[in-house]
Nucleic acid binder design. Sequence first.
DNA 1: GCGATCAGAT
DNA 2: CACATCTGATCGC
Length: 799
Amino acid sequence: MEEAACTLDIKCKFPLAKKKRLSLRGHGVPQQPSRNASSQKTLADIGAEGDLKISIQQVNFGSGTTGSNIEQFDDQDCTIITRNGNERIPLQEDTQLVSGISEGLQNDRDLITTVEQALLDGFCDAEEELPLDVLEEVLSQYDRPLAPCSKSDNSSGSFFDTKVVPQESAALREELEDTKYTYAESAIDRKHFRFEECDVSGRMVQGCKPGFGKANRSCSISGGSSSTQDAFDDSSAFRDDLFLCEDNKGASIAVLLGTHELSDPQLNETPCEISGSADLSFKNAFYAGGTDWSALHEVDEYGFPCASSPQLSSEHDCASIDAEKLMNVDSRIQCKIVRPETISEAVKSQITSLGPSFKEENNANLLSRSSKLKQGDLSSFLGFKRKSPVDAKVPQKKTHQQDIGTYFGLAPLAKQASTAASFFAKLRPRFPTPGRASIEDGQRTGNNGWKSNRETVKNCPFYKKMPGTPFTVDAFKFGAVEGCKAYFLTHFHSDHYGGLTRSWSHGPIFCTEITARLVSMHLGVDSHWLRPMKLGCVSIVEGVKVQFLEANHCPGAALILFQTSCGQLILHTGDFRACKSMQDYPELLGARITSLYLDTTYCNPKYNFPLQEDVINHVVKLTSAALSRNPKTLVTVGAYSIGKERVYLGIAKALSLRIYADKRRVRTLRALDWPDLTDRLCSDASSSRLHVLPISHLNATKLRAYMQSLHPTYSAVLAFRPTGWTYSEKIGSNLSELKPQRSGVVTIYGVPYSEHSSYSELQEFVKFLRPQKVLATVNVGRAAHRESMEAHFKKWLKC
DNA sequence: GCGATCAGAT
DNA sequence: CACATCTGATCGC
């Protein structure tokens, strides 16, 4: 393969940097002539010089700038000129290019060259943006011109063993050597591609769409709401149909079986053997990149074949076994089968309306799936196909018409099979991928053929997919997850439901009743996607026994216990605060947990905050002291959407106060089925001196203003900010040492009230469960954290 | 106009 | 630091 000239020397203009970040969003303006053709060029022009047309719209520096539009780029002194106010921003030596390649490439080779160059020069150092599997595939498919390709035919062999790697960059190597960051073993290390600080999908997990502040604005379904509050209320019409009547749950079917005593050969079979010798490769697989669903069904979590998993046949595979025959639950427990695939008539008619081509494709898809089934390929039944160029052609979703116009990459049947193809499909809709031309033919629509980088494929991280099941947990911001048949939501906090919106259409959502109610109320998700589950009840979903258990986090939060037909027992804690009473859960007593997905928020011995009870008692003490000193004290407690209720309820009970909260919060709290709490609620600020406020409201300025707005009732404010981060080792459990921030009449106490487990609680919980392995779900973004947590897990399980 | 997403701030 | 948002800007239908 001849070597193509690198089309854009990104490296010299945007040298690597660790911290600062220049995020370039390619969008629009291909081929646009420069408005000022002298020494200033548009970025598109720079690209044109080397057959690469880059269009950059937005710049983000590591700190300070919230995105400025780039109008022009001054080649001479590396300055960008923004669209807003003609500001000139010099690019620093250490400004880093994160992304920015857009479409408009003249030919594939240039793309490849450019991508590789970008990988070497910019992407590889990126903390985010480029998923590892995309990189892998880039390199496996396009390892020219930096190095000749010598693909092996042995498809079962390791990717990393069969590819010729790009030439090492001396500069990169040098940089690697004096850096503290760790590298995934495997190709990444060998090729000196650095992936620091990335999560398992190669992206940092980012903050999500806020649930409340924004929802109200977007909820004007009546069209004529006069205020945001009204709009919010309109949208949050309570979905009684969800909760009042079994028959009314949209299209979901709940079959109450009562007391079947069927013995189940599959459930009683020897559990899949877990290879114990594969820690290293598991670690790599887990932390370095995405995995695919097929692997989850054919291999254990370590990526090794599940030796004793049942041989599947058409009459005996996990998914086709009639769920009723799978029932092997305590006859006293109410039990139901839930069929997540059921589609409503409305959705069916939408599918029909998509026209023959779609239907044909879909039928072909189904056919191919069923024929594979006969071959006993469970993975294909579960929606996954092996790498094959044509696979990505078939859309999996069958919902909204708008999806047809959407690039297929959002939900390709085989996103994993060609992540890079999807990636490039978004990047470069006009030009076929080498060797995969068919993938994109006829799939393009819309605009000028440009797509912004914001549409980069986001892969669901490995730890959100439950092995041996077609389920994900708290994975809503990845679009349709390949092969996922049911989406589980542990609780209603925005970092867990992020991505869930009223336009959700990727599959049924399983959660507790309270959570379902909140999702419906606040996010406007159509109730036909929701499957509210009672705490403690066993359900069979896709042949997997599923049980939700109280998580002691926020109202509606649940631990989820999965038991697969081949005997794997998985506990996902969601967010939880472990406590003694969890050791009495009959479902957990003596359970042989295969995998424990653990909320590791405070998995560090320095976090040993006091019991919630003690904190509440202390808060009550402080409050009553303050009130006796000054009866005109306004007492406020900060809270997010839900959570921390026990703090203000504690005060209210002890001091016989009502609880004021704004209308929206009252509405939310009333949805929690918590009579003790709701009985005390009021939405009239003058009815109580105890107010619940958004936690962001708890600063001296805002509180003073707030107090003055209630003038002349109050002359002082006492505020509590309950969060685990308040905890300091110095104070430990000695709450009387807590010192408030005082600012005039405002007194703010940060109190170590945590709704996550402390270190010792985590330790005790893990020791009690003795799972075969523990998987962290929080703080996995940094290698140092992961290693530290793993060391703790190991220690706990040793003794 | 409006829903969705993202970066940055808190 | 990291939780759980909140805010403002932007994109795209």
